[in-house]
Design a protein around this nucleic acid. Structure first.
Lengths: 171, 171
DNA sequence: CTACCCCGGTTCAATGAACGAACCGACACT
DNA sequence: AGTGTCGGTTCGTTCATTGAACCGGGGTAG
């Protein structure tokens, strides 16, 4: 999507954002990164995405300044994929789409979000109703009533935890 | 994207929303509907989108309850495409992506948004800083410094006007 | 009456993207 | 020496997008 045959000629910010974020899987990758997924193989397990596509999407996100690649061991060289500040700023977008989806498409949420400090669930704007606007790192996710995946990565994510806190699948 | 090879197995609201909204062009169609575009040919002129794709996307949006088709003349039968309430509720999502894009990808905005009643520009959350949360119908768009398309539909959109107010290209 | 235009589409061949299976290289462990 | 893990790449098949051509109902100008 990002080469040549884009949303050329569009004059709005939305089209520029969609060239980067509008490809299939991309927003789900960012969402999982917010949820703490960092490793190539963990994204792959959680998303059931072809490796070639994941590789392509991560490359585009890095190119676009949304994620960055960081080496976490040298022998053999291994990398993890982290959100940049620009990427973390996508939290309101992802939360807003989730809110819209639950209101308008229905379905039980597998995860809920509350302000870690005071335990109050976030309102649709993404703010804490008691404390006002909060950072993604102040948000705690905890299991909701909806169905959950049972792969090791998802299971590690089903414990209450803050956004951006690294997911460590057991074994 | 919406048939068979979807984001099956994903457990989150985001993936359900993306099955409907994540296809190429779809969010741009919704955005233009919020900006007042209603007719098939006007979407087509504004977006430079293949007719077959536009037809497909409108059908999916109707199926998903985001838009509805309304007859505006009988001989010959002509239809316009309107947002449902669910569709109008996508305004915060679209505004949030636009805000993110301007902050993180740069570029001059061709359009700015203010509260129609008091004339104050909206804050990133989409609220009016003086009056608090407001409805999309209370938002007025007006030309910003960025480049603008010059097709008849876009030209009609470059005058200050409220969201959802129908665009009527001259001629 | 005829020709042409507008609107809202559909059809079709060519191109490009996504999928999934197979493979690979570096290293660790047994 | 063989097996396993991580982070990929390669490749043939399938699916989606594109742009051009076509179409039909009706209005309008000559």
């Amino acid at each position: 999507m990002a080469l040549g045959k884009d949303y050329v000629g569009q004059d709005c910010s939305l089209s520029r954002a969609l060239e980067l974020l509008g490809e299939r899987w991309t927003l789900l990758v960012v969402q999982n990164a917010l949820y703490g997924v960092r490793r190539f193989s963990d994204f792959q397990v959680r998303l059931d995405i072809p490796k070639a596509v994941l590789s392509d999407r991560l490359a585009h996100l890095i190119e676009g300044g949304v994620m960055r690649k960081s080496q976490y061991q040298t022998a053999p060289p291994r990398y993890e994929y982290l959100l940049t500040d620009a990427g973390i700023e996508l939290w309101p977008v992802i939360f807003a789409i989730g809110v819209w989806s639950r209101r308008n498409l229905g379905g039980e949420p597998p995860r809920l979000f509350r302000h870690a400090e005071c335990g109050t669930d976030l309102v649709p704007s993404g703010d804490c109703p008691k404390c006002g606007p909060i950072e993604p790192a102040e948000v705690e996710m905890y299991p909701g009533p909806g169905p959950k995946r049972m792969d090791p990565v998802s299971r590690a994510m089903n414990r209450p935890r803050r956004l951006l806190e690294p997911v460590i699948p057991e074994q």
